[in-house]
Structures are given as C-alpha cells and as structure tokens.
C-alpha cells in the first residue's frame, strides 16, 4: 500500500491522509442509539421523518447498514454492541441494555423490533430484553425466521424449515 501511495500524485495522498484523520477524530457513537455518527446524534436519530416510537434492536452498526439497505424500515435503532453470554462474562450491563431501558422510559416508545442473530446468545439477549420491555407495556416483535429467499428446500437446515412450517403464512390474492 505504501509504494502505491508514493506513486500517486501528492495531492491525492494528502487528501486521503486528511480524510483518515477526520474519520478517526470525528466519527463517534450516537449518544442515543450508539450507531456510528459524526455528530452527537446520528443521521437516523436526527431525521424528523423517522418514526421515533419504533426501535429496532441490533447487535452492531453493520446490522444498521444491512437493514437501511432494504429501505423497508422507517423507525430508529438501538445498537447493543454485543450479545449476552455469561460464560464469556458478558452480562446485560456490559452491553447497551441499561441505556435502552432508560431510552424507553424517557421516550414514548410503542414497539421494539428484535433483530438479533439466531444463535443461543442472540436468543438469550432477545428473551432478556423482551421480558424487561414487556413489563413496561411496550409491544415486542422479532424478525421472522425461516427459509431464505431463493433457497432450495432440500438444502435448508431442519430448524429453519421447522420454523418456516410452524410460522407459515396464508397465500392471499
């Protein structure tokens, strides 16, 4: 990489260096949702067109990018920064769950959507949050899980297939 940069015009390399410096100094975490941001609030939390009564819970900022790419979600996010795993010493206090509870207490939140990975740690985190949040009278939903679009039935693992059968949907015109 160094040799390549040395071969390029000086201006281009210096511009890249300044961009890297800005990225390192300016990028921080959103104070509300803990997504990456260049301000104290991220673009999603700042946007007046986003529904602030619905919060989607994700593990990492990469998950925010993935969901934003679908252009199907208009609510806000809450980035946990990890999943509960007591064996690894990660409890609810070690990820952004207390901040989520405070946020729900302070704002008028109607629904939270749990969008965590389908692993045991993901499930434990979902069950934990669901318990805490339901007590507060907030509706809790989770992403539907099953066969992926374009996936062959015979190659789908049994758990996904079983979930798809259990959560089947009626075909309508």
């Amino acid at each position: 990489m160094v040799l390549n940069l040395l071969k390029r015009p000086e201006g281009e390399t210096l511009e890249l260096a300044r961009a890297l410096e800005r990225m390192r100094l300016d990028i921080r975490f959103c104070e509300q949702c803990f997504n990456l941001s260049d301000d104290h609030l991220c673009s999603v939390c700042k946007s007046p067109s986003r529904d602030e009564h619905t919060i989607c819970i994700v593990k990492d900022f990469q998950d925010v990018i993935a969901i934003e790419n679908t252009a199907q979600y208009n609510g806000q996010y809450h980035v946990l920064g990890g999943l509960i795993s007591p064996v690894e010493g990660i409890g609810p206090q070690d990820i952004k769950i207390p901040q989520l509870i405070d946020r729900i207490k302070e704002k008028e939140v109607n629904e939270i959507i749990l969008a965590l990975s389908s692993t045991m740690e993901g499930d434990t985190t979902e069950f934990y949050i669901a318990r805490k949040v339901t007590e507060m009278g907030v509706k809790v939903s989770t992403l539907s899980k099953g066969i992926s679009v374009g996936g062959e039935l015979e190659y789908t693992d049994e758990i996904s297939l079983a979930r798809s059968i259990k959560n089947r949907i009626e075909m309508k015109d």
Binding site: I84, P86, P92, M120, T124, Y128, R131
Partner: peptide, 12 residues
C-alpha cells in the same frame, strides 16, 4: 445474579 437473565435462559 440477575434474575431476569436466569429467566431468559429458563425460557429457552
């Protein structure tokens, strides 16, 4: 010991 966490594990 977080009882809610125990409960979340017991749910599963």
């Amino acid at each position: 010991i977080d009882q809610a966490l125990i409960q979340a594990l017991d749910d599963q």
